[in-house]
Design a protein around this nucleic acid. Structure first.
Lengths: 163, 163
DNA sequence: GGCAAATGGTTGGGGTTCAAACTAATAGCA
DNA sequence: TGCTATTAGTTTGAACCCCAACCATTTGCC
């Protein structure tokens, strides 16, 4: 049923050797797959960076967006961050609990919150930003400055036109 | 404390208008952030495609890798797919339960499984592949054939050198 | 003013992921 | 042979994620 052209056969031929070279088929040249692998690899790398600051990687974009847009609401924030608003509930809760973010009700719209960074939040963000800059420098080296601009432009186009 | 230079002030100025333009700060030009947003957007799009086939998007790469490498083990598969092997346990279980994948113990190594696609699995994969091709065509259009090759090459380099 | 529709945020359910601890089987080596 | 280290796969726990349903409030409109 399963002929000799399978991984076991290949492994046996190679004398039980470790890693057989994998056939990725069409995946090898498809954008989607390579995009996913690259993104996840880069994210893991940044995750290691941010762990050294004692933060989770996902917090960085959140803190940055609050810092740059003081008083932003949770819905606006989730939109800018590309996540569902319900995903933000536990995140904001955690940030408030740990004293990095302050949140108050709007006077004119008592449904909405407005978010601000506390001094502690600004300090944490500063540390995270330093790490992120290192991370970016490494990505810059990998990509090469010549292609960088064009690369980002393509990423933006994907985000805009595949939505 | 919080001056007039905040989102609420801006929103009030605009007469309670809907979307205030967000300041992304350094995120706007950083690779990591744009990579994440682009990947997630593309993934969502493919998710819609695969839902029409009644499959989850994550299953596609798994099925393809099994199809191209019959008899592959779960560890090899998880490695090729860029996931932890423990993530694969429920996935394979589900695929076996639904009759898309067959799994047998190796005779020479009774710890390991070898995975194969069943006829039903091949059929499902064929349908998914058709959708994936459409998805890829759209990505191609967005990126432009001129940059496509270079773009993938950069993604591969990121995956390889940020690991 | 008053009632329906829309909006901000939370909750609950299901799915995916990783990391660490664990079991079973194999390999290495004395 | 027998002990130790390694390897394949599973389990468990925690973090995120989305979606749909749900309150509370506000807006729109008559």
């Amino acid at each position: 049923m399963h002929g000799t052209n399978d991984v076991n056969a290949r492994r046996r031929q190679r004398g039980g050797g470790a890693d057989v070279s994998i056939d990725f088929g069409p995946l090898a040249t498809w954008i989607g797959f390579n995009l996913r692998i690259a993104q996840e690899t880069a994210f893991q790398a940044f995750s290691r960076h941010s762990k050294e600051v004692g933060e989770r990687p996902g917090r960085f974009a959140t803190l940055t967006l609050i810092a740059r847009n003081p008083g932003i609401s949770q819905t606006e924030l989730s939109l800018a961050n590309g996540r569902d608003k319900s995903s933000l509930t536990p995140v904001v809760e955690d940030l408030v609990r740990r004293g990095l973010v302050a949140r108050r009700r709007l006077e004119n719209d008592r449904r909405a919150y407005s978010l601000y960074l506390t001094p502690a939040g600004k300090k944490t963000l500063a540390m995270l930003t330093r790490r992120a800059r290192q991370h970016e420098r490494k990505l810059d080296r990998v990509i090469g400055l010549r292609d960088r601009r064009r690369f980002i432009e393509i990423l933006r186009r994907i985000a805009a036109e595949m939505a």
